[in-house]
Nucleic acid binder design. Structure first.
Lengths: 227, 227
DNA sequence: TGGCCTATTATGTATATACATAATTGCCGC
DNA sequence: GCGGCAATTATGTATATACATAATAGGCCA
């Protein structure tokens, strides 16, 4: 047993077997390396993976301990809309419903943080898959955060433009279920109050807010991920 | 510039700057290591991270190439219900609504795959946060997949029991928005048709299906994650 | 031309070593 | 006992080297 995957799996097994109960500190890398007759770097790799998976927590000097009420982590693929639609074998098209400048509502300002400018662009876009409404995108964009001129937004989605010009934005993503309002219902072709899967993203580059966007997916949408 | 994070960031920047357009093969590890005056292992680490983030795809001999329609990946924490409720400073309690043996519906059988047994346990549980309905859990469980006797289910949730006995099941997780049916509405104290955030999990150990579970969260629930 | 085999090559992993860094522990002076 | 400084220690990272593995590319032979 020497590969880091084997070591990782064995450590998983031993943790599961309560050899080290939740909260307990497991042996140090040197010790484990000796036990498994492997190099410390190999054990390190195994432990690092377990830490990423949320099974253990590691702190310098304090050592590695089994997580208590382990929140499991899953790596979710957040597809780019166009790619997602095309992956389903359908044709992606989109249509700008509205583009205006204005003052973002307080809820949006709060989510974007302190440096939110007074005026931003509001852009509403309807995305279609083979002509059928797929998702309604409602976005507020900070023009000061984007260098260069705005491209032809009838050809490139705002998201794709941002990804290509500011690819390292940090931020947060929030998933929720929302009842369709009159606008959502009209554009997505569903009843008012229908359950819509909603993805909200907030992005910043450093302290500069870039964009706040909410995607309402048409009823029936599912976001799946291996666990 | 020698740390793997700096190298990773610089590679990200160069990819974003279209130095290597999507689909293009980027230089090999040896070359990059020379460029950055770093060891190959360091560059390897940087590239590995970019691959995990979905920005590049790597194949032996073929090299590393920039992903085409890059679906972004985010690591989501899927909290254990009890931990999630307690993290919000509330008291978690739960109540078994029903526990019976029966034949799972075809939809569930299909999701669990070929080896689904004819009869499984159906367990419905209501989770509360400070007494308020928090989530309704509807589960089908394969008793043959779990070693040992069933514990006292009034003290331990099924999920926690499974996590402790079979902690390394594989599976899939699906997020969606669902309209509350009469049962969901009754237990969660919302109107029929209300938009509920729904998490469905299917787990297997190898080819043996373990459990199918669907969690309907009370209205207003949000699942957030750093991006 | 077409199919198979092999050489080449880029990534994947393992190892020993060294130094960096964070955090705890414990000592010291007060 | 308490505050703060310093020693200790476990993890984090970097490096050179070596070998493993997968997959392409090219050559050989029918």
């Amino acid at each position: 047993m020497s590969g880091w995957q084997e070591i990782r799996d064995d450590l998983r097994r031993r943790i599961a077997a309560r050899e080290w109960p939740p909260g307990a500190t497991i042996p140090g890398e040197e010790t484990l390396a000796a036990d498994y007759a492997a190099a410390r770097a190999t054990v390190n790799r195994a432990l690092r993976e377990l830490a990423v998976a949320g099974l253990v927590e590691r702190r310098r000097k304090a050592g590695t301990r089994v997580t208590q009420g382990a929140p499991r982590r899953a790596v979710l693929s957040i597809p780019v809309l166009r790619a997602e639609v095309e992956a389903a074998g359908k044709a992606h098209s989109f249509h700008i419903l509205a583009l205006r400048e204005g003052v973002p509502p307080e809820a949006v300002r709060a989510r974007l943080g302190a440096n939110t400018p007074g005026r931003m662009f509001a852009i509403d876009t309807l995305h279609r898959a083979d002509g059928a409404a797929f998702a309604l995108e409602r976005r507020w964009l900070n023009p000061a955060a984007v260098p260069g001129p705005m491209p032809d937004l009838t050809r490139v989605t705002v998201n794709e433009w941002l990804l290509s010009t500011l690819p390292y934005a940090e931020g947060e993503i929030v998933f929720s279920a929302e009842a369709a309002g009159p606008e959502e219902a009209r554009h997505l072709g569903c009843a008012t109050g229908a359950a819509l899967f909603c993805v909200e993203r907030v992005t910043r580059t450093g302290a500069v807010p870039v964009t706040w966007v909410r995607l309402f997916h048409a009823p029936g949408y599912r976001l799946a991920s291996p666990l």
